[in-house]
Structure formats: C-alpha cells, structure tokens
C-alpha cells in the first residue's frame, strides 16, 4: 500500500522542477487576453466620466488637463490609482468612445517602491510603450492600440 506511494513519488522526483525563475529568467505569465495597465487615447476621450462611475474599486478620478481638446469641453480625463485598481476591465467595457483600452503589462512590471508613482496621470496613461519588452494586445479595440503603438514607435 505504501510502496505504491513511493513508486509514484520516485517518478516525480526524477522530473524537472515545475517552478520558473522570475524575474531572472522569465517574465510574468501573460496571455493575449491578460488584463494589465491601461492606455488612454486623449484625442478620443470626451470626459463623460463613465469609467469613473463604473469602477467598482473607486480607482478612477477625473482630473483637468489643459490643452487643445475640441472633443472634451470640460477638459477632464481619467487618472488611475494602481494601488486600488483590480484590473477587472469594467472601465474599458463601459467607455463609449473606445478611448480606454488595456495592455498585457502586468505582474512585477508595475511594482514600484515609490508610493506616489502608482498614481497615473492622463499624460502618463496615454504614453504606452516605455520598454520594448511589452507585447501589446487588447481586450477591446485592438486596431486602436496598434495605431497608437506605431505612433509611439515613430515618435521615439
């Protein structure tokens, strides 16, 4: 009875370890649908505050950004607090103008030592591609993200 246990145990003993070395060898586990950091298209946002109303964790606040925004009369844009955000994706789904979208930047890429840097202003949210490691895939409006990505690459 107990010998069986040893037999199966030996099989597992000879296998390679299942765990992975993070972050030394590999990045966080992500797939094409992983919900991660947001991207804001400021040329589309009308300041309707739907994302703020729908957010279950109360992570979004609307803040004023000066500039030429013909579509946004009140000049207010979402600011996301990543200490509160649960990455449920409700804001992306609720956005009627496809201005908010999500990337698969997640895991330890978002970890920081400075508490103040978890607050992402609209300007910081609209800048997407800080490193080349990120693979950008989207839950909603994939074409928009690809367009933004091209713009980001040409600017850099």
């Amino acid at each position: 009875m107990v010998i069986k246990t040893f037999k199966v145990g030996l099989k597992y003993l000879l296998r390679r370890p299942y765990t992975r070395l993070v972050p030394d060898r590999e990045g966080p586990l992500t797939s094409d649908r992983t919900r991660g950091r947001h991207v804001l298209d400021m040329s589309k946002c009308t300041g309707c505050s739907m994302c703020q109303k729908v957010c279950p964790a109360d992570a979004i606040q609307m803040v004023k950004v000066e500039g030429p925004w013909p579509q946004n009369v009140k000049k207010i844009f979402p600011r996301i607090d990543y200490q509160r955000c649960t990455f449920c994706g409700m804001c992306v789904e609720a956005c009627p103008f496809n201005a908010l979208s999500m990337t698969n930047i997640s895991g330890w890429y978002l970890i920081t030592r400075d508490k103040k840097s978890t607050l992402y202003n609209p300007e910081k949210l609209s800048k997407v591609f800080e490193t080349k490691e990120y693979r950008i895939t989207m839950v909603k409006s994939l074409a928009e993200v690809q367009r933004l990505k091209k713009e980001g690459e040409s600017n850099a």
């Binding site: 299942y18 586990l29 992500t30 797939s31 094409d32 649908r33 992983t34 919900r35 649960t86 990455f87 449920c88 994706g89 839950v139």
Partner: peptide
C-alpha cells in the same frame, strides 16, 4: 491547478478572479 490557472489566463485574462 497551475495548468488550469494558465488556461483561465488564456480564456478570461486573469488567473484567479475571472469576471
């Protein structure tokens, strides 16, 4: 269980809370 969590990430976008 980890295999199933990877499957969930593939289908729903998250590992634990899928919504």
């Amino acid at each position: 269980r980890e295999e199933i969590l990877k499957w969930y990430d593939y289908l729903t976008g998250h590992r634990i809370y899928h919504h």
